[in-house]
Design a protein around this nucleic acid. Structure first.
Lengths: 269, 269
DNA sequence: CAGTGGTCTAGACCACGGT
DNA sequence: CCGTGGTCTAGACCACTGA
């Protein structure tokens, strides 16, 4: 039970302040940067323990009061640390139940902002098909992004997304090869639209975070063929790099989408 | 001095709880929804006082301790309320100095994400020119957005933005007429690129918040002429509605930009 | 019903900013 | 130097969840 906690240390009393009531490293806790506020040191330690996979998604992490007791800090400090993690989207609180590790649902992804004008029904029918999956040498920039040495093969997927039968998005996906070998033995039909859940179920890889960029271009003949549109039509290009909890790149992808189906809204403050 | 505070009430003791130590409406304070947590009631009251312009941008709002005393709540509750306002971008704290009302700097605006490939110099030279300014009847959708009755004239501006001498963005701006009449007597040359500062200086109108949407299209002949590009080239269309602190729409604008100069990046969690 | 997070208080010291 | 926000503690009651 106590091994639920073993990890890095948060830091000794830090700052020789008079009011540091707690002998802070009694129970094998605390140590790190010192000048860092305790709630941040705690945040870092919790983030580390979350990323190394010792806690799962279905059970809550240890309760606030047990954390406070374990680390020898006050409840308020624990709450502050957890608030940070909530703000960062790493964790989510459920009153009466506990604090849970959050998986990204990618609701902030730019490809969420594709409108589907063709769908007159309320529920847009979405279908995903993986047309190709093989080991292949990625372009140098992609290989570098995945942390591969020059010339190493990666896993390549060619995927198409349809809405109400209309082809809207074409994805080119590159995966870090050593972590995703299990995927290659999976029939292509079983890699559905929830590809990140497949990564979890089949390869034990959890995407925690991603970076996306969006730009606009006109379809070359090659891209036009991918999307079954006229060359010269405007297309949206979304590139995404996905990372696990430890910050290692797992996936790089580039999506081409018809530009007339895209609208993005934000609020500025 | 006390009139710095007069405004709405936050609410009587709300919830007949035993631990409600403070006779909460002694000094003319508190009242509102009741079931609302106090820190939210306080947040609402502060937001109201900020929006009605009783406090300015150069001085801090009353200190946490004076707010706590005035409202008869604890310091922690005041801090929680202010944290909300910070999170919403309404206010910003400066340690040792005070808490200040924040003006939006629009750093989150989508038009910030225009890359300027033409500029090889480090500093992109930006120039803004207002080509036209007049009273004009806006399209019904714009008039409605500004809260005008059908057929009422608004103030229209045609503005171009250049980078290193190259025309990149064309703006069509519509302003709520009664608040911006002073603008009409200003020479067009004096409305620079910091148009929101002009609104403040010249008309006393402060933009607190805005909503933006982005979509992609191909240039019609009219738009192609605006941007001096070929018809059929891809263009970015950014529409923005700006609001004052009380939530009234001040400005509606639509910007056309060359698509090949746009790249937007986000992080997903 | 026990346990979790949510709200709230009261009061301490610290670090920073301006006078 | 004083006043501001920043960190931290200790302990209370409330509202919700799930067994």
């Amino acid at each position: 039970m106590n091994d639920l906690f073993e990890g890095r240390n948060i830091g000794p009393p830090r700052r020789e302040s008079l009011f540091s009531q707690n002998a802070v490293d009694q129970s094998g806790v605390l140590s790190s940067d010192q000048r860092l506020p305790r709630y941040l040191a705690l945040r870092d330690d919790l983030a580390y323990k979350i990323s190394d996979g010792r806690w799962n998604f279905v059970e809550p992490i240890p309760s606030e009061s047990s954390l406070a007791k374990h680390y020898g800090v006050s409840l308020g400090t624990v709450r502050r640390a957890i608030e940070e993690l909530v703000r960062e989207g790493i964790v989510e609180r459920r009153q009466g139940s506990g604090t849970y590790i959050r998986r990204s649902d990618f609701s902030g992804s730019l490809s969420h902002y594709l409108r589907f004008r063709s769908s007159h029904s309320k529920i847009a029918f979405q279908e995903c098909r993986v047309l190709d999956m093989q080991k292949k040498t990625p372009p140098p920039s992609v290989g570098e992004c995945l942390g591969l040495t020059e010339g190493t093969e990666a896993i390549f997927l060619d995927r198409k997304r349809f809405h109400d039968g209309e082809l809207l998005v074409s994805d080119e996906i590159w995966l870090e090869p050593s972590r995703f070998t299990a995927l290659l033995s999976l029939p292509r039909e079983e890699i559905g639209s929830l590809i990140y859940r497949t990564y979890e179920r089949c390869c034990g890889q959890v995407v925690a975070r991603a970076e996306e960029s969006l730009k606009v271009s006109v379809a070359s003949t090659a891209v036009a063929a991918l999307l079954e549109i006229q060359p010269g039509s405007p297309v949206i290009i979304i590139e995404r790099t996905s990372y696990d909890g430890a910050g290692h790149a797992l996936e790089w992808r580039r999506s081409y989408a018809k530009a007339d189906n895209f609208e993005y809204r934000i609020e500025i403050r």
